[in-house]
Design a protein around this nucleic acid. Structure first.
Lengths: 234, 234
DNA sequence: CCAAAAGTGTTTTCTCTACACCCATGT
DNA sequence: ACATGGGTGTAGAGAAAACACTTTTGG
């Protein structure tokens, strides 16, 4: 059947990953960027990307890029948007589909990071990026803000055990504004999706803050019955 | 610089358009589908699509497909999602980006429609579609529901002048559930985005219903100042 | 004993929802 | 005069927002 498409032009197709992380100590949202060690744009900052091969789906390609870079699989990942302007890549015409991923900074092996030229950069102070990567990042940021309001994806950025203060700090970092402590805690706790642990975090305060865990199974169960997660708070 | 990408495989790239219309008389949401007059899948139903050419961006390609089919330009259109599974098109490996478009059924010239084998089909009674087009449609429907809640895009499906009853019928068709008349009118009118005309629609009732127009400029002005459209009603 | 961060309730405001009757007009 | 669809307001419930003091404990 291939002859049917005989006169159709073909294109280079790439994926680019917007990889978010969260620094629990500095309370900052970060982006995993690559200092390019190859042409074009050698030495400049870019998203993690790669070309789509013949034997892999788009999602496969994005996973491959992500796994190669981080050594991690089963990360939260989602397709976002496809950029198909004529001259977005000066090297050749390349159409690129962006994916956004969420990972806990602590999960990332510094060795692998170094080997791949990957660096965490603070969202509020990004370097100049190649091509249209900055546009990709901005779209992903918008998406992240909307997403965490209504789906429990923020937890992907935290360790398994986290305190309510840490969770609130994360939301403040994403929303880029302060959030009322009492309203925040009331709302998240009223959903009954967090399991309180018998253990306190004692690094950051003398009193210590209780650890919690997000209960995925409970969320799935509730969601099946029409429950909607919501943390769009003041 | 093209040699840099010498060993990279290339792919067929397509766009598929999910074109929504609204039948103001039958109060039904419709989809513009093509009865294919060519292989593969001759005689079967499909979305309007086409391959991305060498000298056009993705958006250009989608516009071209849409214009060719409808004879209209300046339609509301938005990119949705890119489908890149290996075997989604049995003819060859094709990656396809879906776009959704909103047009008023009344705008469409029946001659052009006939010439292109395009037919309006009711959303609630769609025929079987080729490839993964049904999946594309379902995603687009979800997107449409979410979109009309929070952006004034529903008006793209209506004539310039419309009545509040017609607007409500449209929202009921999209939400696929009844909506409270008084709450709906209260909410839309309180936004002060509709300009009441001095004229009534008299086809469907003896009393007649006032025509309104959506004031785009006013909306843009308000939106600039942080106003949010909202018609997520009971 | 004090500094530093964690934890905790109540009141007010606003938004959402439910709901039933009168109006205008063509036949 | 009546049938048909268009148009209108209010009261109650629930959600969101504003807001300040007490607790714990290591040094």
């Amino acid at each position: 059947m291939k002859h049917l498409y005989a006169n159709i032009p073909k294109h280079y197709l790439a994926v680019d990953c917007i990889i978010f992380g969260y620094d629990i100590v500095e309370k900052e949202l970060k982006l995993l960027l690559i200092k390019r060690s190859f042409e074009p744009a050698l030495g400049r900052w870019s998203l993690a990307g790669g070309f789509v091969q013949e034997n892999e789906s788009l999602d496969d390609a994005a996973c491959r890029v992500l796994c190669t870079l981080t050594g991690l699989s089963d990360l939260y990942m989602e397709q976002l948007y496809t950029y198909g302007e004529m001259n977005r890549d000066p090297g050749a015409r390349v159409i690129s589909t962006s994916y956004f991923a969420l990972i806990g900074i602590h999960e990332l092996d510094p060795e692998i990071q170094k080997k791949n030229g990957a660096h965490w950069r603070s969202i509020s102070n990004l370097p100049e990026l190649i091509f249209d990567h900055r546009i990709m990042v901005d779209r992903a940021l918008n998406e992240l803000v909307e997403k965490v309001k209504v789906y429990p994806v923020g937890f992907e950025l935290l360790p398994e055990k986290f305190t309510l203060v840490q969770l609130q700090n994360l939301y403040e970092a994403i929303y880029m504004r302060p959030v009322d402590k009492r309203n925040f805690r009331k709302k998240i706790l009223s959903m009954e999706l967090l399991d309180k642990q018998d253990e306190k975090e004692r690094e950051t305060s003398k009193k210590g803050a209780w650890y919690y865990r997000f209960n995925v199974e409970k969320y799935r169960e509730l969601a099946r019955n029409g429950f909607f997660f919501n943390l769009a708070v003041s």
